[in-house]
């Protein structure tokens, strides 16, 4: 509708629109602006005068130096990457296979089982931290990175998304491939998956972001500091720095954790945005 409406906007209306949206945008980005500025700001006594966004100081890397010394960001990064991509690789297998079954095959209890999966959209793993921790302990996986990933290996959201995508691909393509002598795996590999690529990318991005950001479950299941993920490390780092009102240090630590996301987002902004949009319309 705004495509239509905007055509007729008068100049003052346009100006008002830009002022409002412009200032909301500035306010919205405030915390990030502060993070970037404060992370390069020399520590003032007791953290006073840290809020000013005016760059009236000589930038320093001290905060970053201190942050890198106070937490094992290297280990935290490696663990987080293992968790994020480990989860995604298993998910891709389980999700594609299950979605294919739902989209293309007929079997008993199909509707019931589909609803069982759908239900997991609401009964998400964080709610079940207590019994899941018990399960993890009983199979001896506590305090391992596999334990952080395992509850997410079946993704209802992914199955739901891929099922819709597969359904939207005409069967003719597959039939043609089968006539050409392709087996089911080849059909999947050379016909369905390439056509479903946008959905796969969308699912992957959403999954990576979700698991990069996960906090409560790894906090529960990991005890050894050398197996912690970035979010858990950042939390204890921040609490310690907060006690000394070391805001520049907190800003630098947060920046270190968010940096890959910022870079990825700047480079692939369109991809990110369309992935998240894609996940919505289906």
């Amino acid at each position: 509708m705004s495509t239509n409406a905007s055509r007729k906007r008068s100049l003052p209306a346009m100006l008002l629109f830009f002022i409002i949206i412009g200032s909301v945008t500035v306010i919205w980005s405030g915390p990030f602006l502060w993070m970037i500025i404060a992370s390069f700001k020399p520590q003032t006594f007791g953290g006073l005068d840290m809020a000013s966004l005016a760059p009236n100081f000589k930038p320093t890397l001290d905060n970053y130096r201190m942050a890198l010394m106070s937490a094992e960001f290297g280990t935290l990064y490696i663990n987080t990457i293992i968790v994020t991509f480990g989860t995604l690789s298993v998910q891709l297998v389980t999700v594609v296979l299950a979605a294919y079954a739902f989209a293309r095959l007929e079997f008993r209890f199909k509707t019931l089982i589909f609803y069982m999966f759908l239900m997991q959209l609401m009964i998400v793993p964080p709610i079940l931290i207590v019994p899941n921790l018990k399960t993890i302990v009983s199979i001896g996986l506590d305090d391992t990175l596999v334990a952080v990933m395992a509850p997410y290996f079946a993704s209802a959201f992914g199955i739901f998304l891929m099922r819709q995508t597969f359904k939207s691909i005409p069967r003719d393509f597959e039939d043609a491939a089968v006539i050409d002598g392709c087996n089911w795996f080849q059909v999947l590999r050379y016909v369905l998956l390439p056509l479903a690529k946008p959905a796969l990318v969308a699912f992957s991005i959403v999954s990576i972001v979700a698991h990069w950001n996960e906090f409560l479950w790894p906090l529960m299941v990991i005890d050894s500091p050398d197996k912690m993920t970035l979010t858990v490390g950042l939390a204890s780092f921040t609490r310690a720095a907060e006690g000394a009102a070391d805001w520049g240090l907190i800003a630098a630590g947060t920046m270190i954790v968010m940096f890959p996301l910022i870079v990825a987002f700047v480079l692939f902004q369109r991809q990110f945005v369309s992935s998240f949009m894609f996940s919505g319309i289906k």
């Binding site: 937490a71 005890d223 050894s224 500091p225 050398d226 204890s236 310690a240």
Partner: peptide, 22 residues
């Protein structure tokens, strides 16, 4: 030396690590 957060967190972690045999 492994930094484990606040007093409370350190207590919880050390105790859980003991239960896990590590």
């Amino acid at each position: 030396a492994v930094y484990t957060g606040s007093y409370a967190e350190t207590g919880i972690k050390a105790s859980a690590a003991m239960e896990a045999g590590n």
